[in-house]
Design a protein around this nucleic acid. Structure first.
Length: 418
RNA sequence: GUGGACGUAGCUCAGCUGGUAGAGCACCCGGUUGUGGUCCGGGAUGUCGCGGGUUCGAGCCCCGUCGUUCACCCCA
């Protein structure tokens, strides 16, 4: 009796072969530059105390107020599936006293995150991000380095059609001054109910409105960048100077808005041109008050998160995804029971030496097995039957040329390495 | 969360004004006994997303539901 099929929960992204190898390539390419810059892996739980995100990310944010997967565990604790990476990293850094050692603390992470949004292409309820955090250094040079690492990841992937947008959100003083004038400006606007509600929660949000009439209305709104304190301005100017020196191109976007409360100072976003509405492939910035907010010492920090799913979509859209499909070195076709045993032995020995070896089990006809070998893209094929076993010699066939040479089974390794 | 589009074999899709489903690709087998890619021949496959309704009769019409997708929103 056929049972009813069970399908994946709504809106999750998952990757099966052969696309999974593209996913793997994207994920690894994006994060590789981090370890080359001395960042070390930090592996964290996917669920945390709900309070961590409320306090870290901010209760007024959409992410926390309406997009979290929160539930009570069996001990009555409120648990939340992590919607982003930074808060968890800060929690762990404080908990393990990493900030008591040499600064900055430099870590990278990779994994899945969860947000209960309405799904569409590039926006999933479970999605993948890689990211880094550099904690405990105010130097604008680290800002530039962090941005350069993200940019290097996208470049390593082969992406071209994206841009880096950058601005500074300034410090508390800068934002307070700006907020007063911005609210004054907004009060002169006629807003519909939903928009007014958004403005009440975070007036900066109005800069993000996609509607033309709103864009026009906000044309003359006071910009935060014009309210930076001398210190914030100087910091930002130096970041820009370093980026120029690094040859990293960027667009200044003083209207950029970020959805997480902890951002301060340098803030940036990578936007891809071919992705439609979900075009942000990465973003990050400083979060100078976060650690203290979470009960740690008062250290600054900066980091980014890159969307692996979206970067994959972008790579596919640009047609730059490398065709590094799985290919084995040797494909063994055993004929008969005795040969299977022999094939297993030979394969184990070669695999122990680092060779990728596949065996055609299942007693397929030789023709079918050869077809399988061909499809697998294997470099070499051997047929293992009675005569081969008794003579200890096989015909090593190179699939591409069709040429085969006699090789002793014992010297297969050397033959493969030629 | 709001509004719109779509949902037919593993994949891409066709199916005229309602009459109980097809193509290409992929897959499997064979073309004389142990060597692939081309070619030729043959073959399997669908509760037409799901549930109701209208009708003598629905893949085609109506309602609901689930999923995907586009925009808003949000952001990776």
């Amino acid at each position: 009796m056929a049972q009813q099929k069970i399908s994946a929960p709504k809106g999750v992204s998952e990757y099966a072969p052969p696309r999974s190898s593209a996913f793997e390539f994207v994920r690894d390419s994006l994060i590789a530059p981090a370890s080359r810059a001395g960042y070390q892996l930090i592996e964290l739980p996917v669920f945390e105390d709900t309070e961590l995100f409320k306090r870290g990310v901010g209760e007024s944010t959409d992410v926390v107020s309406k997009e979290m997967y929160t539930f009570e565990d069996r001990g009555g604790r409120s648990i939340t599936l992590r919607p982003e990476g930074t808060a968890g990293v800060m929690r762990a850094v404080i908990e393990h006293g990493l900030d008591r050692g040499q600064l900055p603390v430099k870590v990278w992470y990779s994994g899945q995150f969860f947000r209960a949004e309405r799904p569409q292409a590039g926006r999933y309820r479970q999605f993948y991000q890689v990211g880094i955090e550099a904690i405990g250094l105010d130097d604008p040079a680290i800002d530039a380095e962090v941005i350069a690492i993200a940019d290097a990841g996208f470049k390593a992937l082969g992406l071209k059609k994206y841009r880096l947008e950058i601005t500074s959100l300034g410090d508390l003083q800068s934002r307070a001054a700006h907020r007063v004038d911005l609210l004054k400006f907004i009060s002169t606007l006629e807003l519909d109910e939903a928009t007014a509600a958004r403005a009440a929660i975070n007036p900066l949000r109005l800069f993000d409105d996609k509607r033309d009439e709103m864009k026009k209305a906000m044309q003359n709104a006071p910009l935060l960048i014009d309210y930076l304190t001398d210190e914030s301005r100087e910091h930002f100017n130096r970041v820009i100077k370093y980026l120029d020196a690094l040859g990293i191109s960027y667009v200044l976007n003083p209207r950029m808005v970020r959805g997480l409360d902890y951002y301060t100072g340098t803030t940036f976003e990578f936007v891809h041109e071919l992705l439609g509405a979900q075009s942000g492939i990465g973003g990050g910035g400083r979060y100078d008050g976060l650690m203290e907010q979470l009960g740690g010492q008062s250290l600054s920090g900066i980091g980014f998160g890159l969307g692996v799913d979206r970067a994959l979509l972008a790579a596919e859209a640009e047609g730059v995804i490398g065709s590094d499909a799985f290919v084995s070195d040797l494909f063994i076709i055993p004929l008969g029971d005795e040969a299977k045993l022999q094939a297993l032995t030979v394969a184990s020995a070669l695999r122990a030496q680092g060779k990728t070896v596949e065996i055609a089990f299942g007693d397929r006809a030789l023709k079918g097995a050869m077809k399988g070998a061909d499809k697998s893209g294997a470099t070499y094929v051997i047929v293992l039957g009675e005569s081969e076993i008794s003579t200890g010699t096989v015909e090593l066939k190179e699939m591409k040329s069709g040429v085969s040479t006699s090789v002793k089974i014992d010297s297969l390794l050397e033959a493969l390495e030629k």
